[in-house]
Amino acid sequence: MEKPVTRDPGFYVMVAIGLAVMFIAPVMLDLFTIMQITQYVVLSVFALSLGYIWGFGGILSFGQAAFFGLGAYTFAVASINMGSTTIPMVLAFVIPTLFGAALGYFMFYGRLSDVYLGVVTLVVALIFWKLINHTAGPEYSIGSARLGGFNGIPSIPTLHVPGDPSAWLDPGQMFQVFMGFLLVIYVALRFLIASDFGRVSISIRENETRSSLLGYDVRKHKVIVFAIGGGIAGIAGAMWATYQAFIDPNSVSMEMSAKALVWVMAGGVGTLVGPIIGCILLQWLTLQLGTVDVVNSIAVLGAIMMVLVLALPKGIVPTARSLLLGGYILWKRNQGQAISGKVVKE
């Protein structure tokens, strides 16, 4: 049972932490570190997109990177053509959302089961990856933007103040704007999950047949959840594109989809904080391992994924939560015993 968001102290704590990081970090930390953690912020948004559709809609997408990449490429092509970044940011949400709705229509109205769903989403991402990889020649260009195949699209404009293309954001401001995005998306998702719509999608996750017997249109709900997830992943992709000023087909690769899955799994399915924590923790870990030449980072990611499935299927946040709760109950009980023991003595 989800508590109303406004009565959950955890929600305020999270928002407070977010705001604190957003305003204090650029003052406290040096430029390089800021740029490093901007990366975590962007990828956290991506993790949230999968964390939402998987944890609160029961839709396990194995090709979430398709939306990430679609958003990134949409943003890149649109911003290079327009010379502005405001409308492309909107497009990077709208187009992946529409694509998610279309794909979702085929999958959910076809009543594909979980397994098939996973495989179809993965295959879509793979085909997308293959198509983009083959767009190397000059004939593949949209407007003045060349798609560039496996070489990617370079010199993507940096984010600027809406309406004034000459007012670039410096890295500190970019970090703050992205933190703002992350916070807004987190808050919006919390409210969405607590709304009637969110409750119905959770009930669908729990028991599809029962929800449809109660009169809810399961297919429509799932399409909408899936499309929203796609749109959020699209925004993350656009943020990634403008942060790196460069985008290549790796953003659509299986590795990218797998990373999102591992983050959500590690952090905990069915929470929104979990995916963010999982993302930051594992990205930091891969960054550390990347400096060691002997171990291949893909192998490590794979090993982590296997170990997580076998040993910690619930993820960090739910496990920690139940441990804390269990500890709290034990503590309470002990206190109770201590008090009652005193009473007996007296």
Partner: peptide, 22 residues
Amino acid sequence: RILDSLLATWGLSMLMIGGVTM
């Protein structure tokens, strides 16, 4: 546990790619 087996074998796939590359 169909989904878990999918995730585990995906992990295995990355482990194999990484291992063979090494």
